[in-house]
């Protein structure tokens, strides 16, 4: 799974080429063409209907990856804004002797304007080179998904897929609070796990050391998961801590017991005073 869309959230060039997502180099040399960087078999086909030349084929079943009939594609760009996954780009490697253009969906404010100098970024969002905006298309058919076209040096045309957002300070490198965090063995004892009952990492480590080997066992000893949110926030972390301590994978730790109601309701609802 190294270097894949599942690991990183964006695809690698090798992954795309292996899945035949790139048109042939001969087709690139004939002019603008769509690059459909769609890798996951999900039920989705707006791109098929967006192409008036019949160049995109999804067919049956609807989870098929869209196949580009590269000889039919004119590079018109109608499919770019239609892709809900923002995964379609128009690449024109014939724009000039030294430059290529990349068209991509750009759902951010402020929009750039034609002629503006921008920083071109790759699939990971890292700055690759300087670029110039050649077109900003936001017609009604785009349905609020503007398509921006930028000119960049030709050698980066397989890498560049967007531009750095304007008027936004770049994220700090060490800013990791939004990552999909569960638990790290180096976490300090006073870190809160169960926010409702104020149960810390140390409390749960102690419970596990005392023999708790299920989420329910930890709950009985510490009250983690017994507060207002009913374990919605902490049970994943508790599960990971038990799995780590027992050297098991997370799916071997049984889920905690879920009982109705599925969302917090006042007692008066259960007593029949009002409808849910």
């Amino acid at each position: 799974m190294k270097g894949t869309i599942l690991e990183n959230g964006y695809p690698s060039i090798e992954e795309l080429k292996n899945a035949h997502r790139f048109p042939s180099e001969e087709r690139f040399q004939k002019g603008p063409v769509a690059v459909i960087e769609c890798l996951q078999p999900i039920p989705c086909n707006p791109c098929e209907n967006a192409c008036r030349f019949g160049a995109i084929l999804v067919g049956e079943p609807i989870i098929n990856l869209p196949e580009l009939q590269e000889e039919k594609c004119t590079g018109c760009g109608m499919c770019v804004a239609s892709c809900s996954g923002l995964a379609i780009f128009i690449v024109d490697k014939t724009y000039s002797a030294t430059e290529a253009t990349i068209s991509f969906p750009y759902e951010y404010l402020p929009l750039p304007v034609k002629g503006q100098a921008i920083k071109a970024v790759n699939r990971a969002g890292e700055v690759v080179c300087d670029g110039t905006v050649t077109r900003v298309m936001n017609v009604k058919q785009n349905d609020h998904t503007p398509v921006v076209t930028i000119a960049i040096p030709k050698e980066f045309s397989d890498d560049v897929r967007s531009m750095q957002r304007l008027n936004v300070a770049p994220a700090e490198k060490d800013h990791e609070c939004c990552a999909d965090y569960t638990y790290d063995p180096a976490d300090p004892d006073d870190l809160i796990v169960c926010r409702c009952e104020e149960v810390t990492v140390g409390d749960i480590r102690k419970a596990i050391a005392e023999g708790a080997d299920t989420i329910t066992g930890v709950k009985r000893r510490t009250r983690a998961g017994m507060g207002l949110c009913q374990g919605r926030t902490c049970s994943k972390t508790v599960s990971k801590m038990i799995a780590d301590a027992k050297h098991l994978s997370g799916d071997k730790i049984p889920l905690d017991t879920a009982r109705p109601p599925v969302k917090p309701v006042p007692f008066s609802v259960l007593a029949g005073d009002e409808d849910i």
């Binding site: 926010r195 409702c196 009952e197 104020e198 507060g227 207002l228 949110c229 919605r232 926030t233 969302k263 917090p264 006042p266």
Partner: peptide, 29 residues
């Protein structure tokens, strides 16, 4: 918070974690 009287604000922001509960028109939580 009840145990340590520590301040809490918006945490998840989607109605899951109950960190942002307040007393509204007399109704707690």
């Amino acid at each position: 918070t009840l145990k340590h009287h520590e301040p809490r604000g918006v945490f998840c922001g989607i109605g899951q974690c109950t960190d942002c509960v307040m007393i509204v028109n007399g109704q707690p939580n």
